[in-house]
Structures are given as C-alpha cells and as structure tokens.
C-alpha cells in the first residue's frame, strides 16, 4: 500500500476491500468444544461403568473429576487464547458456550438436588449451542448435530437412567466431538 494521502473514492475502496477480505475465523478455539465433548462423554461412560459394577468408585467422582479438568484447561487455554486475534463472531460464540456451560452446571446441581436425571437438560443446552454455532457458520452439519441433541433429549425421557448415560455420551461424541474434529469450517 502506498503512503499517499487518499482521495475519498480510494478510501472507500480500501474500506470495502479490507472488510470483505478480512478473515472472520481467526484462531477458532475448536479445542474447547472437543475437550468438553470428550469430558462429558467420558464422565457419562464412567458413571455407566460404576452403575454396572465395572468400576468401584463413588458414582459422583466422574462428575467432579472430569468437569474440574475441563475448567482448569479452559482457564489456561482461555488465557493463552487472549493473545490471538479474536473476531467478534468468535467472541460471541465463546461467550455463548461459556454461558451454556454455566447453565449445564446449574442444571446438574438442580438435578442432583431433585434427584432427577440431568441428561435431557444437558443435551438441550448443548443442542442449542451447536445449532446456533451452525447457523452462524452456515454449516448444515452443525445445525443437524444440534437436532440430534434435541432428539436425544426427548429420547432420554423414555430410557432408564443407566441407558441415558450411554445416550448422553454417544450424543456428545457424534454431535460434538466428531464434527468439531472433521468439519473444515469450525
């Protein structure tokens, strides 16, 4: 770019060119979604193993251990990610998922308090986040995965608790981990 003083039409041309060509997918932090998808899936499968007497640890251990790992790694990665270019789009998506994970945490607490299954609520929260991400990215795979979570949440209601664990884990892997690992747009 030259160092001349710009004429108005040149200025307008530069603004239009830069805004249309600037990448809006700067450093998308897909590792957050993969991490949480894997951790929730592993926690679900571990609790299933506990209920089936395959593992002999208290039932709540997976739900304390794995989210704690996720929280620590998210804080570390979040701090490191602050040192990269962050588009407003990504800022919105990260904030939305952060809010949804808080909603999931509260939902877990309420479910434990009421002694009900948290999985329909978890699947609805993750489904909402995945679908909105898909609409923002114009990525049909993610919109479809959001629907899978929604259907999983409804199907959960008709399953016994131990099978809900398997369904929750499977939905996390199919609807969250796999598309985040293999979709080029995320």
């Amino acid at each position: 770019m030259s160092k001349n003083i710009l004429a108005p039409h040149e200025s307008l041309a530069i603004i239009q060119k830069v805004v249309s060509s600037t990448r809006h997918d700067y450093h998308i932090q897909r590792k957050f979604y993969v991490l949480w998808g894997i951790l929730i899936a592993v926690a679900s499968f571990t609790q299933y193993a506990i209920l089936q007497d395959i593992l002999t640890i208290p039932w709540y251990y997976p739900w304390v251990l794995f989210p704690s790992i996720g929280l620590v790694l998210s804080v570390i990665w979040g701090y490191a990610g602050k040192k990269n270019t962050l588009s407003y789009y990504n800022h919105f998506v990260l904030t939305m998922w952060f809010t949804l994970y808080i909603a999931i945490g509260i939902s877990l607490y309420i479910s434990l308090f009421n002694q009900t299954s948290p999985f329909p609520n978890i699947l609805v929260c993750v489904g909402i986040g995945t679908s909105i991400s898909g609409f923002l990215m114009k990525n049909r795979l993610f919109i479809f995965c959001g629907l899978i979570f929604g259907l999983g949440a409804i199907y959960c209601l008709y399953l016994p608790f131990h099978e809900q664990l398997l369904l929750n884990g499977a939905c996390m892997v199919i609807g969250n981990v796999v598309p985040n690992l293999f979709s080029p747009h995320v």
């Binding site: 770019m1 710009l6 530069i14 805004v19 809006h24 700067y26 040192k83 270019t85 962050l86």
Partner: peptide, 24 residues
C-alpha cells in the same frame, strides 16, 4: 477528512480493527 485516517495502511488497520475484538 481526518488526516490520520487518510493513509492506506492506517485506514486498512482501522477497518480490520472494527471487525475484530483485538488483533495480533
């Protein structure tokens, strides 16, 4: 016209910064 912004590089930088929260 603001002379600070009437330079190609400065105008380009400002246009980019408007679309991101912060830039490397």
């Amino acid at each position: 016209l603001d002379p600070i912004l009437s330079s190609p590089v400065r105008l380009a930088v400002m246009s980019i910064l408007l679309t991101v929260k912060h830039a490397h």
